[in-house]
């Protein structure tokens, strides 16, 4: 079986398991909504304020929810020592990373997509066409978090800090991506609100493009690093 086939096999396994239990996506979505709820008591997020802090609030919620879930990436493989089984199999270690990263990517993206409608609803963001531009930001943002998160999740199972480990490492590392996720989202919200009041709209503004480039670069760099370094983490 080739590299791609093995990656897909493991990915399918993880997606099937999640489809059955829904034990990662469901809590994540709820958690995102709860965080948004809490934030709402700090600032009322509707209207003009939305473009100022909305993006930050949204991505804070995504990241914190994501971090809790990412720990499970390999923690779930400790049951019955299935991680050993995966390490014993004749697959490249990097294929294991890739499949786990992709499943995390799917979960994170799913959470984002499920959380967005409630977000728009509670904070009065009219779902106008420019909002579609949010998609590339969400996708790339999820890709960045999945890359960094998966790499460090493999370490978190061997740390006394356990769930506390991931936030400690991922948050500072994610800053470049976070800045562009928030920046890009802000651009999109801005365009959306302009559209809503009939103003001139710029589809791919310079700002948005720069942020997307940053996210793309970040995702590529971290995936490349992870593919190379992963084997050093899973070795006993």
């Amino acid at each position: 079986m080739n590299y791609v086939g093995q990656t897909i096999t493991i990915l399918r396994k993880d997606l099937s398991l999640e489809w059955r239990s829904k034990e990662r996506i469901t809590p994540m979505v709820l958690f995102v909504l709860l965080i948004l709820l809490v934030f709402n008591f700090s600032f009322e997020l509707g209207g003009a304020v939305l473009s100022e802090i909305g993006p930050g609030v949204l991505w804070s919620a995504f990241i914190f929810a994501g971090l809790l879930s990412l720990h499970r990436t390999f923690a779930s493989e400790r049951q019955n020592e299935t991680l050993d089984a995966l390490l014993l199999a004749p697959i490249d270690r990097s294929a294991l990373y890739l499949s786990k990263m992709l499943s995390n990517f799917v979960f994170l993206l799913a959470v984002q997509l499920f959380s967005l409608p409630p977000f728009c609803f509670f904070f009065n963001l009219s779902p106008e066409p420019p909002l579609l531009l949010l998609l590339p930001v969400l996708v790339l943002g999820a890709a960045c978090l999945a890359a960094v998160g998966t790499l460090f999740a493999a370490m978190s199972i061997h740390s006394r800090l356990r769930e506390q480990f991931l936030p400690l490492l991922v948050l500072p590392m994610m800053v470049p991506a976070l800045i562009s996720c928030i920046g890009g989202t802000a651009e999109v919200f801005d365009q959306t609100q302009r559209f809503a009041i009939g103003d001139q709209v710029e589809i791919f503004s310079d700002g948005l493009v720069t942020h997307l480039q940053m996210l793309g670069t970040y995702a590529m760099v971290f995936n490349a690093l992870a593919l190379m370094l992963f084997e050093y983490i899973v070795e006993e």
């Binding site: 099937s16 398991l17 239990s21 019955n80 020592e81 299935t82 050993d84 089984a85």
Partner: peptide
């Protein structure tokens, strides 16, 4: 091994 190395949910 004495661990099953199997996925309980499958």
């Amino acid at each position: 091994s004495h661990q099953s190395l199997l996925y309980d949910e499958l």
